[in-house]
Amino acid sequence: MEKSNTTIDFILLGLFNHTRSHLFLFIVVMTIAIASLNGNALILLLILLDSRFHTPMYFLLSQLSLMDMTLVSTIVPKMAADYLSGKKSISPAGCGLQIFVSLTLGGGESFLLASMSYDRYVAVCHPLRYPVLMSWQLCLRMTVGSWFLGAADGLMQAAATLSFPFCRANEIDHFFCEAPILVRLACADTSVFENVMYICCVLMLLVPFSLILTSYSLILSSVLRMRTTEARKKAFSTCSSHLSVVGLFYGAAIFIYMRPKSYRSDNHDKVVSAFYTIFTPVLNPLIYSLRNSEVKGALKRWLRKCANVKPQYT
């Protein structure tokens, strides 16, 4: 098979064909992407403007929204431009940037969700010691650590992936550059890299996931010891939104990065990648707004305030 170096542009075959049904799906996806950007931007705005949300819990939520906005902004505009213009090429630098950003945000979100589970554990199990056990200093350290670990993983995998020679005329049957998809095109033995990538995925996904399971096991134990039904409902309400986001995120990430090679297919990968890069980011603000009375209350206050502002005429 003919080899090619990484100075030649890659060709992204995309998610849609130029048919009427695919055009409709494209419009649906773009609508969801715009809703995702607006929803996460609204969450960020509410947390910034409302002093009631200046707590570690909502600061971590703001970082989750920021990661989701960045992911959608990195993937969707390029995909839309390729579909509308018919130009599907992407430079090696652009491809490497997409791999780096998607892995940075994926890894960072994994550790961020673990930090949020610790925050919920302290809030439910040790509410009186919350200011000490979940101080602003610790919150900032966990946030910076999440971004740093994600960036380290993204940089390593992007550099290693693009170091291989590629085959199949550099055609990528996907709508953005993703490390597991790109490795399949390599005209070289990638077994060592795939093993290393698998180990990285275990560390970046299963270690935080184990911490999340531990936190919620302790929370469940504490909730079951509560005497009143009202206290139990409040505890479950506090944690249910975060658990929903964890299930969505880890389900898609484990499917993409931790399946055996023999069980992978391009069509399945594209669908699941679309789910976690486009659909999950729009679900996060919906989950946290619809199931969080404080966020709904802040949104209503903000809308009333905007409605009461009268235009000034001179």
Rank of each mutant, 00 (worst) to 15 (best):
T214A: 14
Y118W: 04
V183G: 04
K233P: 08
W147V: 14
A298T: 04
Y118D: 02
G297Y: 06
L42H: 07
V202I: 14
S237W: 00
T229P: 02
I254T: 11
R120L: 05
S73Y: 05
M30Q: 03
F176W: 09
G108K: 03
Q98E: 11
C201R: 05
E230A: 12
D50R: 08
S237E: 07
F249Y: 12
G154I: 02
S215N: 03
T143A: 14
T31M: 07
A231F: 00
L149G: 11
I278D: 01
W302M: 11
D9R: 00
V245M: 06
M69A: 09
P180W: 07
S65E: 01
M258I: 08
R141Q: 13
Y250M: 04
S215I: 03
S115P: 00
K270H: 10
F100T: 12
R184M: 01
Y257I: 05
L303F: 09
I90M: 05
K270I: 15
Y198W: 11
P165T: 13
Y276C: 15
K88P: 06
P165Q: 10
T70F: 00
E109N: 11
S115H: 00
I75V: 13
F24L: 13
S110Y: 04
K296M: 10
H126M: 08
K234M: 13
I27M: 08
G251T: 01
I47E: 01
K88T: 12
T143H: 02
R129M: 15
L66M: 09
N308Y: 03
T143D: 07
Y198E: 12
S215W: 00
T161A: 10
E171C: 14
D153G: 10
A158D: 03
I219R: 00
W147D: 09
L48N: 02
T55C: 07
S241A: 13
L12S: 06
E230M: 07
G106S: 13
S21A: 10
K78P: 00
N292W: 04
A123E: 11
D68I: 09
A235Y: 04
Y83L: 12
V309Q: 12
Q157K: 09
L44Q: 07
E194W: 05
G297D: 12
E2V: 13
S273M: 13
V272T: 05
K234P: 05
N40R: 02
L303K: 09
L220V: 09
A169D: 11
S85Q: 07
A253T: 11
L113H: 00
N170P: 03
M116F: 08
S4W: 03
R264S: 11
L283W: 09
A235Q: 06
F26A: 14
H22M: 06
N170T: 08
P285N: 04
D173Y: 11
P311W: 09
C201I: 00
S65M: 05
